[in-house]
């Protein structure tokens, strides 16, 4: 037989509305947020600095010179002064971006992967499994982040890899918690029920229906952790648990320069300024992302 769809024909949509995907909509919103844009731009510049350090840095970050110790900002040949061993501050800051960004970002990336996996499984399965997983997570949560990081790094011994590892452990619980709560929320939507009703297996449902809807919020939350991670990582280096001298790393530089603060305060705070700007830019970008992703 034939169907006459007389009543349905003119359901013409507003044809003018451009068909765009979710991420396109997010980025078009983000582009109209000046604060997030500027923050993103600064982060990009610092990232470029890290990548192109050998070409950008005027001198080697390791070459010491006893004659040029603790020069102030604006000295001939040392635009940002020198440190206590006479190394060029500008070069060390540029090279320092590599290590500092690495130990700031890597733990969050690792924790994002592991924490999301734990949280999504706990949230999707629910029930007793959820309770068990989340209570274990809570144990880690009970320690203050700084203390946990120091304790772990201390127990494992100083070193870059160990500090990366301990920071990862610190960030897994909060990310898992957010992932769990977002997933629990999504799990109760009708479209998940509809997918179950179509006979799909849990793994398929997670892959096709859950991930796309939960990764966004978890990602936004994780970006806000980068600033914390930067500061913690610098803190570990400052305490001698992370990067080791003579590596150029902002936290470590802040530590070694702290005696010079009375001699040459402006140069001494420069690594701190870098840490501060990266963290605040990360936070602003993540704020911007959050509101841009809140399409509906």
């Amino acid at each position: 037989m034939s169907i006459t769809l007389d009543s349905q024909v003119p359901v013409a949509a507003p044809v003018s509305a451009p068909v765009k995907g979710y991420w396109q909509a997010v980025f078009s919103r983000l582009r109209r947020d000046p604060v997030a844009l500027i923050a993103g731009l600064i982060l990009l510049i610092i990232l470029a600095m890290a990548i192109f350090a050998p070409w950008l840095a005027p001198q080697s970050p390791y070459s010491t010179s006893m004659l040029n110790r603790l020069k102030p900002i604006g000295t001939e040949g040392f635009p940002l002064g020198t440190d206590e061993l006479g190394r060029d501050m500008l070069s060390r800051l540029i090279y320092g971006a590599r290590l500092s960004l690495l130990i700031g970002v890597m733990p969050v990336v690792n924790a994002f992967v592991i924490g999301s996996a734990i949280g999504i499984v706990a949230g999707f399965v629910g029930g007793r499994t959820n309770t068990v997983i989340m209570r274990i997570i809570d144990v880690f949560y009970a320690f203050p982040a700084v203390l946990l990081a120091i304790a772990l790094a201390g127990a494992l011994g100083a070193g870059l890899v160990n500090s990366l590892f301990s920071l990862t452990v610190v960030f897994i619980p909060p990310i898992a918690r957010v992932a769990e709560s977002v997933t629990t929320q999504v799990r109760n939507y009708d479209y998940i029920e509809a997918a179950r009703a179509s006979g799909a297996r849990s793994l398929t449902i997670i892959r096709r229906h859950v991930l796309g809807n939960v990764l966004g919020p978890i990602f936004v939350y994780s970006t806000s952790l980068i600033s914390v991670s930067m500061i913690l990582a610098s803190g570990l280096s400052f305490l001698g648990l992370g990067a080791r001298p003579p590596m150029p790393e902002w936290g470590l530089m802040l530590n070694t320069m702290r005696d010079a603060i009375y001699v040459n305060p402006w140069v001494s705070v420069l690594p701190g300024v870098m840490i501060f700007s990266v963290s605040i830019c990360c936070n602003m970008l993540s704020d911007g992302l959050r509101s841009a992703m809140d399409v509906k």
Partner: peptide
């Protein structure tokens, strides 16, 4: 069959210039 009104209610961001029900 029900005598349904065709189409859907107007989008208030892009109202037609004449009578809103005309389409």
């Amino acid at each position: 069959r029900l005598e349904a009104i065709p189409g859907s209610p107007p989008d208030l961001a892009t109202l037609p210039s004449g009578c809103a029900f005309a389409p």
